[in-house]
Amino acid sequence: MKTIIETNNINKSYGAVTALHDINITVNDGEIFGLIGPDGAGKTSLIRILTTLILPDNGSANVLGLDIINDFKSIRNEIGYMPGRFSLYQDLTVEENLKLFATIFGTTIEENYDLVKPIYSQIESFKNRKAGQLSGGMKQKLALSCALIHKPKLLILDEPTTGVDPVSRKEFWDMLKDLKKAGITILVSTPYMDEASLCDRVALIQGGKILSVSTPQSIIDAFPKKLYSISADNMHKLIIALRNFEFSNTVFTFGETVHYTDRRNSVIQTGEIMKYLQNNDLKEIKINEINAGIEDCFMEMM
C-alpha cells in the first residue's frame, strides 16, 4: 500500500501554547482518513502544515512523496485544499469562481468536468449567482468543486461539514465516497464524532496530541469497559448521584441519557446501581448496556 501522507514527530506551538505535540500519522493511498477532535485540538494547524501554509517548529512530513518544506511548490500543484472557512470570492459568481480556480491551476472547467460534474451539476443552475448569496450547503459544494477542478491526487478538507445542515452533511459525505471511488485520497477533519464511522481510518486528536490511529471499528472494539446508558426523571440529579457513586469511573451526558462506566472490571450488577439511584430519589430509571461509540472512546482516552 502506498503512503500518501507521512508525518514524523511534528511539533508546533504559538508562543506558550503548544498546538501540536509529536504528531505521527500516515495516510494510505485511496482512503478517507478522518482527523477527529474537538475545537482547538490542533486539527487546523496540522492541516495547514500539510498544505504547506505554515511551517512546523520541528519534525518532518511528506505529502505525495514530497517534503513539505523544500518541495512546497510541487505540493501546491498537486493537492486540492478546502479551508475551514468559506474562502472563495463572494462578489464573483459561481461560474466566475470556478473558472478562476481552473485558470489558477492551469486547466479549464471542461478538461476535468467529469470529476466535478456530480457536484457542480447540483449548483450549476445558480451559476450566475454571486457566491456570497449561496446557502451554506451550496457554498460547500462550490468550494469542493473549486478544490477538485485540477483533479488532485490528494484532497485535504478542513472541517467541511461544520455549520452545515444534517441533510447537506450527508450529501457531502456521499460526495466524498464517490471521490474516493474515483481514486482520490482524502484527508478530512471534523469535530463531529458521528462522522468518524464514515472514514476508513481515523486519528483522534486532543490538546495537540494524537490519542489513537486506527479504523473506527477497532477503536470501538478496543473500548476497555462495559458501557451503560442510564436515564431517569431528573437528569441533573442523576448526574450528581452517579458522580458520587463509589464505583463510578466516567459519567457523561449523551443527549437524553447518561453514559456510565464503572471502575470495577468484574461483572457489574445493574441492580446495585438501580438500587443506589432509587435511594437517591430518582424515578423512571432505565439502565441498558450498550456498545461504545467513537465519542465514548474519545472520552475514555482523554
Binding site: T52, L53, R76, N77, Y81, P83, S87, L88, I104, F105
Partner: peptide
Amino acid sequence: LGSMEVLLASPM
C-alpha cells in the same frame, strides 16, 4: 476573508 489561504495553497 481567507481567500489568501486558498491562493497560497495553489500553484499561483
